[in-house]
Nucleic acid binder design. Structure first.
Lengths: 152, 152
DNA sequence: TGACTCATGTCAGCAGTCTGACATACCTTG
DNA sequence: CAAGGTATGTCAGACTGCTGACATGAGTCA
């Protein structure tokens, strides 16, 4: 139909391509994390805690792109299994700072190596300049999408 | 810890940025599709059918990045509500070619315009050259992730 | 022709995530 | 100081998408 030409062309749509790339990355990460008995969100949570110890439930949720309710469920499981620890009472306010246990750190080490190998493969064919360009372009897209009134 | 430096640095990780961008795009799409009573997968299915009429359930699933089981559930609902039509029996093999009904086309028109506005906002601050660069870079990442043995 | 492989459509069960709701603690602002 | 607004942690229910499984049809090869 001639109307189709006016529609978003999936073949050349950056939005579609972005979704495809993200989907491929997620699938690749799931493939290497599954043997370790870990999901992507599971890994994301541990990685966030390694780099920024003491993050709260809500902060972790934002960093892993899930709701704080979902992260809460995950954190309770991780705490039950001894991967992270949280104080019984909040030192200030309601915020419960979370930390990795030694077991959590050990578990993360293997997962982090696996994920790093995926990222290396993804960046394999790119030059330093191209990586920098991709970084800048993605940052721009994120900003444009998050700012409500970007105007024309 | 000094070990953290060797880990994937989230601040500069292209993988993390890709996930963030995809998450922001999905949120923006959900925001404009919700008033139309449509989900992202719902829209994706209709858009695929508009551009490539006669796609099968499995082909639609691959195009929308979900399993064929999930797409099957969606297609049954869309067929029940009169947005798409499928022949009762497969003309050849088991493949059931799906087509938009006029109602489906009408429903898609509004959604397509809304999604296009999101993509326009996303590309707002980018030059033509930058868009072409982003296109090439994403394509490269996808290829590297999907090809199993890319080597070092 | 018959066996093997692969892709498809579909059903059932399950895990992960989301929305809705509530109580609580901090921070303004009058 | 009191009151409203905002952010947090948590519980409960609902939903979406995934994994596992099965039967069917097409293509391949001996």
């Amino acid at each position: 139909m001639s109307q189709d030409d006016a529609a978003v062309d999936l073949e050349t749509s950056l939005g579609y391509l972005l979704k495809e790339a993200s989907s491929a990355l997620r699938a690749a990460m799931e493939a290497v994390l599954r043997p370790l008995g870990m999901t992507v969100t599971h890994y994301s949570c541990l990685e966030l805690l390694a780099q920024r110890p003491g993050l709260s439930n809500s902060e972790l949720a934002r960093g892993a792109f899930v709701t704080r309710q979902s992260m809460n469920v995950l954190l309770q499981a991780l705490e039950r299994d001894g991967y992270v620890s949280r104080p019984a009472a909040a030192p200030v306010g309601k915020v419960l700072p979370t930390r990795l246990t030694s077991r959590g750190r050990r578990s993360l080490a293997a997962a982090s190596a696996a994920v790093r190998s995926v990222e290396v493969r993804m960046l394999g064919g790119m030059s330093e300049a191209e990586r920098a360009a991709a970084y800048t372009l993605l940052r721009g897209m994120i900003r444009a999408l998050k700012d409500p009134g970007e105007g024309v």
